[in-house]
Design a protein around this nucleic acid. Structure first.
Length: 294
DNA sequence: CACTTGACCTGTCCGC
DNA sequence: TGCGGACAGGTCAAGT
């Protein structure tokens, strides 16, 4: 799934649903999904209470009263879905629920609480993981990530400084680099570049100050709007209640190749950039325009 | 240093 | 209907 808006949506849901609950048991059926020693898990997870839910970059952090935290990366297809005993509705539920009875085929980890409600970690492709880390070590663990784009300190000057760490690279590849800026992935890189009228292959060093200011605002607006829409569900992503997000319905270019650009009407292209499918309008995001406005 | 490719996995879709 | 290949929200490591 999950870029910043999706992880943040899950975080907001979990904050409502599981804070202050006590963990009764933890089960995993795929070691890579939760590689910690089971003895360690029994000692620092079972019996402890959930004290808070945080996010850094695309990572979720569930703080425990034991002084440890569950650090979770959902990668491409991870889901964290909460079910109380009374909400075991099935697929096709009118309220946009995506998944049916749990556990299902993709369930890798099951966390059961003392009130018999349950948190399921599902992950079709098994790329995601949960790691048990001492809470005092989390800051160091996440120190590799660049700044959070939704913090007040993410000014256009800050964006410019970060981008200049890779001046020769194309802008889209740099936006996807989590060490430069945290939380932007393939969907919101394309959407932000469209909003700022920047071609995805434009070398960072060719971006004018005006373009950097515009890009900073575009990133912030696109991420905030997506959080408001509950994130993007192209296929697997659901929030903590198993419901899809709806940003994809209002996406301007992402997965809209061969459709008209909503701004100028020219046909949206799809190319390959940094190994990822990349959508843009060849007219209003042309590299020539980027150079002319410099 | 920048860029590409393959790996990690499962599932779906598209063309033949 | 079946089969092979491409592709999918994300990182990693290794090779050019």
């Amino acid at each position: 799934m999950p870029e910043l808006p999706e992880v943040e949506t899950v975080r907001l849901g979990l904050e409502e649903l599981i804070v202050s609950k006590t963990i009764k048991s933890v089960d995993s059926n795929w070691p890579k999904s939760f590689p910690n020693d089971p003895l360690e898990v029994r000692k620092f997870v079972v019996g402890s209470q959930i004290t808070g839910i945080n996010r850094r970059a695309k990572i979720l952090i569930i703080n425990l009263s034991s002084g440890y935290s569950l650090v979770i990366h959902l990668k491409m297809t991870g889901q964290l879905v909460y079910r109380s005993e009374s909400t075991s509705f099935g697929a096709g539920h009118p309220n946009d629920s995506l998944i049916g009875l749990l556990p299902d085929k993709s369930t890798r980890v099951i966390i059961e609480f003392s009130d018999n409600s349950t948190l399921f970690f599902n992950d079709q492709r098994r790329f995601g993981w949960i790691k048990l880390i001492k809470t005092t070590n989390i800051k160091q663990f996440t120190s590799i990530y660049g700044p959070e784009p939704l913090e007040d300190s993410f000014t256009w000057q800050e964006l410019g400084n970060r981008l200049n760490l890779r001046p020769k690279s194309g802008i889209k590849a740099v936006l996807l680099d989590q060490q430069i800026i945290a939380g932007i992935g393939n969907i919101y890189a394309d959407e932000s570049l469209w909003a700022a009228k920047i071609h995805p292959l434009t070398p960072v060093s060719e971006l004018s100050t005006q373009k950097i200011k515009l890009l900073r605002n575009s990133i912030v607006d696109v991420l905030n709007l997506s959080i408001k829409m509950g994130g993007s569900s192209t296929r697997n992503y659901v929030n903590a209640e198993g419901k899809r997000g709806s940003y994809i319905k209002i996406a301007k270019v992402f997965r809209r190749e061969n459709e008209p650009c909503p701004r100028c009407g020219h046909i949206i292209s799809k190319i390959r950039v940094a190994g990822r499918g990349t959508h843009y309008c060849p007219y209003c995001q042309s590299q020539n325009i980027a150079k002319m406005s410099k």
